[in-house]
Design a protein around this nucleic acid. Structure first.
Lengths: 168, 168
DNA sequence: ATGAACTTTCACAAAGTTTTGAAAATTCAG
DNA sequence: CTGAATTTTCAAAACTTTGTGAAAGTTCAT
């Protein structure tokens, strides 16, 4: 397989994969393109290589910077802005975990906590089921929370190394 | 806060949360409703409590069964089918992990593996960057794969217990 | 075998999301 | 300053996903 072909395939598949992960298709494709590009790319490079409009490219580059997956670099003598992706996959994964925890998980846990104490007949079976469900989600959430923290703070070798030895 | 109110809030929020997780809004709402219901519910109960159409309810109950999160139960003397959700949150989480791994992660890794060997000038910097990216995704993927396997196979107390002691 | 009860399907409608491209805003060299 | 290069915004269009409800299909007690 030729490089050009392989690059296209990777970009397409990473795009589809990303769309399952709270990252939209174009955003994931821009990310894929930057991951496999040795040099920083300008917005026009990205538009051209992915065949997307100016607005779309701009929006998604911005979103990738918000997620902390892409950085702006300044090339001396160049007026335009260039972009590079973080290439260390462990960092990419923990960064995504961190963001999604903040955006989705933490708010959900806040809601769950706010639903812990409800009035009414504690003998009613639906009342009982409700409080049991809420409290088990809360317990599970606390554990997941700690686990995510550990992962996000650990560096790759320490974390995976220890975990794998442990679970061998 | 009253039970009815709290139930509605929980269903709404779980619905929004689920939609970030490859589970659509109605599907997550049906799941939420079943999680907090002490008794099995019929399709009509679900339609009524969530204000959704027959077709929609049917489709999403079916999808939840596909995901292994909901089961059909037969109530003696009743013609209709009833449904219950798995209430153990750890089982719910590992089941979702298992399904998403199968549907999204495994195919992505297969693609990555197929892109490992490409022709061309190994000195070209984009060629080099491409193979490096692919190989680091592959390495990361193998580790993630083993980790998911351990989680999915472990039972809650063993897994969380050990992990937490370990990382204390 | 019949038909009432119940479940499934599917074409179309509604809702939601993403993309476009042109116009407005900003930046910067001269 | 000025104006060319570049970036940002945003309303409308295209596309995608989800939901509806009526009709078709199935099941089962009689």
């Amino acid at each position: 397989m030729k490089l050009a072909e392989a690059r296209t395939e990777f970009i397409t598949k990473w795009g589809a994969f990303g769309s399952h992960w709270g990252i939209n298709r174009t955003m994931a494709q821009v990310h894929a393109l930057l991951l496999i590009s040795a040099d920083p790319l300008s917005q026009d490079d990205i538009m051209e290589q992915l065949n997307v409009s100016r607005g779309n490219a701009n929006m998604n580059i911005r979103a990738l910077m918000d997620w902390g997956l892409v950085e702006r670099v300044i090339i001396p003598g160049e007026r335009r802005e260039f972009f590079v992706a973080e290439k260390d996959i462990w960092k990419v994964a923990t960064q995504i975990l961190r963001e999604r925890k903040k955006r989705e998980f933490d708010p959900m846990m806040k809601t769950v906590e706010s639903l812990e104490n409800i009035e009414g007949d504690k003998k009613d079976k639906n009342h009982k089921q409700f409080t049991e469900t809420i409290s088990s989600i809360k317990t599970f959430g606390r554990q997941a929370d700690r686990m995510m923290d550990v992962m996000v703070k650990a560096d790759e070798n320490w974390f995976i190394g220890s975990l794998m030895k442990f679970f061998k």
